[in-house]
């Protein structure tokens, strides 16, 4: 596949979406799934990236800005632009926000493990933020919104029980290229939509450098493999390199555990989630 001029464009046609329709489905999804279980409010981590900015925008539209609390949780190594972007989005939406600098608690912990590598530190930060969100969830009687998209979930590009943890997730069935389109439709600042995606766990980190491929390319591959069930031979004929296909398939397979509850050793005749199966919206 040739290198695209822009990371967000052009849009691969099968992944092009009717933005207003998706917006309506997701806004109603948030209203329905939040309110019917007895909540009015939500909390989410607002990083200043496109995913969380989009979720914040949808939540503000669905529940009203006063029912949305954004947690801005920088670490001292985070890019200052991320914080500025998060503040811009919170200000633009008129939602409630709270800043919690996670540096003291992260540094206190790693003072005992000075040799910890970047990935370990990054995972710890993601879980620290999750812990804060769930504490705020209790304190504010609000559900935690997830912001992981379909690309990240399939590739396992997230921290289990960290940023992957949430009560409900409006973006989990949208590929990254679709997130960009929807963000544009709902009015997320263009600067945020166009900037290089980053987990911002260390200085200069970008998703696409770390992953080794571009979202708009991998989304096309995932669309064919997952949504359309193309075989490896068929996607190879489309022009995807064999090594790239195998790398992506390996990531999808190796990260399956992140998308499931912990494995339970089966003993009884009705084991939770195996033969004890109830809908999550049981009674609602």
């Amino acid at each position: 596949m040739s290198e695209p001029a822009s990371p967000t464009e052009p849009i691969f046609q099968p992944l092009a979406i009717n933005g207003p329709l998706v917006r309506q489905i997701l806004v109603r999804f948030l209203q329905n799934e939040v309110r019917k279980v007895g909540f009015e409010k939500v909390v989410l981590g607002l990083s200043g990236g496109v995913d969380s900015s989009l979720v914040a925008t949808l939540a503000a539209e669905a529940l009203g800005p006063s029912n949305v609390r954004a947690l801005i949780m920088p670490y001292r190594g985070s890019d200052p632009k991320s914080r500025r972007d998060a503040l811009q989005v919170a200000g633009q939406l008129g939602i409630d926000y709270l800043e919690v600098d996670i540096s003291p608690q992260i540094d206190a912990y790693f003072s005992r493990f000075a040799d910890a590598d970047q990935k370990r530190r990054g995972n710890k930060m993601a879980r620290e933020r999750m812990s804060i969100l769930y504490d705020q969830s209790w304190a504010w009687r609000a559900l935690v919104l997830g912001t992981s998209n379909k690309t990240e979930l399939l590739l396992g590009y997230g921290t289990i029980y960290g940023d992957l943890a949430s009560a409900i997730n409006p973006l989990g069935d949208l590929y990254k290229t679709q997130v960009w389109q929807l963000a544009d439709v709902v009015g997320v600042p263009t600067d945020i939509v166009k900037k290089a995606p980053s987990a911002d766990l260390w200085a200069g980190q970008t998703d696409e450098v770390e992953l080794g491929f571009q979202y708009r390319v991998v989304d096309q591959l995932l669309y064919h493999l997952i949504d359309r069930r193309y075989t490896v031979a068929e996607v190879e004929q489309l022009g995807f390199q064999r090594a790239f296909i195998e790398d992506v398939l390996r990531r999808v397979r190796d990260n399956q555990y992140k998308r499931r509850l912990p494995v339970i050793a089966k003993l009884s005749s009705r084991t939770i989630d195996r033969d004890f199966r109830y809908p999550r919206d049981w009674g609602h």
């Binding site: 099968p14 092009a16 979406i17 009717n18 329709l21 998706v22 489905i25």
Partner: peptide
């Protein structure tokens, strides 16, 4: 259940 989001007006 609705599914199949494209650029079409409806699902």
């Amino acid at each position: 259940p609705g599914r199949g989001v494209t650029t079409d007006e409806r699902l």
